[in-house]
Nucleic acid binder design. Structure first.
Lengths: 156, 156
DNA sequence: CCTCGTTGGTTGATACTGTCAATCATCAGC
DNA sequence: GCTGATGATTGACAGTATCAACCAACGAGG
């Protein structure tokens, strides 16, 4: 069954990617763990955002986001401000230091991505992303994952 | 830059896959962690193998393999026997219990893979695997990763 | 036959990742 | 005013991954 080794392929691909990324990050002199990096990227790519939005955007647990935010704030990479319109929420913003770190991160990621995608055309990479997006959506369709806030079809 | 979001795609794809796999595993009543499962599969798919071969096959650290083997042996899912031809080595074999667990694992994985690949044709999945393999090879080409025993070009 | 470098495997230590649950303050709807 | 839901936090814990040091065993070379 052709689908049988999708899992093996995905595991090894992820291993390869993570190793490559860590290598590039180290080369750039960045010491942040990968999850911190993803969260900083998400904050940096939005004008103003919240922890809930970041968790939803990168598909991870809000508890984990909170912990990373605590450390990023302690390192002065981000700032938090209470949302006056909804005091449960906090508005997250990237700092100047954070912006600088982000520049290095983007360089490292471009380097890692460049290695990964060597000899693959843009069209092939687009196709790959398309299929990956389909696979991700397929897993959400099958369940009500509250973390990703996927509406539950035929269910209330 | 098109390559810029390969990383984001890969992270979310892996999240989605691991969640789906854990769901299927739980549905099958299996309590083994994913790494144990991958190792059991590797042992089950070979007539006789070694820890070193398993580590190489699934692309993980030999220390981690040893720990998982300790637990799988304690659960009577595998057996270890000293290789008479090279007493540094141990021959790994799956037990009857392990074979039974493996059947459940394969069912769970087929289920997870089925969800992931819904609405994707076999040709598309093959293309996906092809590109993934290219990406994996690209990362090995760039470094001497001793764990995967990639020969180091221009280096001795 | 001896030496030495390499290999297979093990264990220690540690950081990172991820999940589940409980909790609190806040909000909106009734 | 009450109640259920939400945003965020913290505790607890398991799983994943890596690096380093170590030991027994092997094979090549002198």
């Amino acid at each position: 069954m052709a689908t049988d080794s999708i899992g093996d392929t995905l595991h090894q691909l992820m291993h390869a990617y993570r190793r490559q990324l860590r290598r590039s990050i180290r080369d750039q002199g960045i010491t942040l763990p990968v999850t911190h990096i993803r969260i900083l990227k998400a904050i940096g790519s939005l004008k103003a955002t919240t922890a809930r939005e970041v968790a939803r955007r990168i598909g991870t647990d809000k508890a984990q986001v909170t912990r990373a935010l605590n450390e990023l704030e302690a390192m002065a990479q981000i700032s938090r401000q209470r949302d006056p319109e909804d005091r449960r929420s906090q508005i997250l913003a990237i700092t100047e230091d954070g912006r600088s770190t982000l520049d290095q991160i983007l360089t490292a990621e471009a380097q890692a991505a460049g290695v990964m995608s060597d000899s693959l055309s843009d069209a092939e990479l687009d196709g790959f992303r398309e299929m990956a997006s389909t696979m991700i959506r397929n897993t959400l369709k099958d369940t009500c994952d509250t973390e990703t806030e996927t509406p539950c079809p035929n269910r209330n």
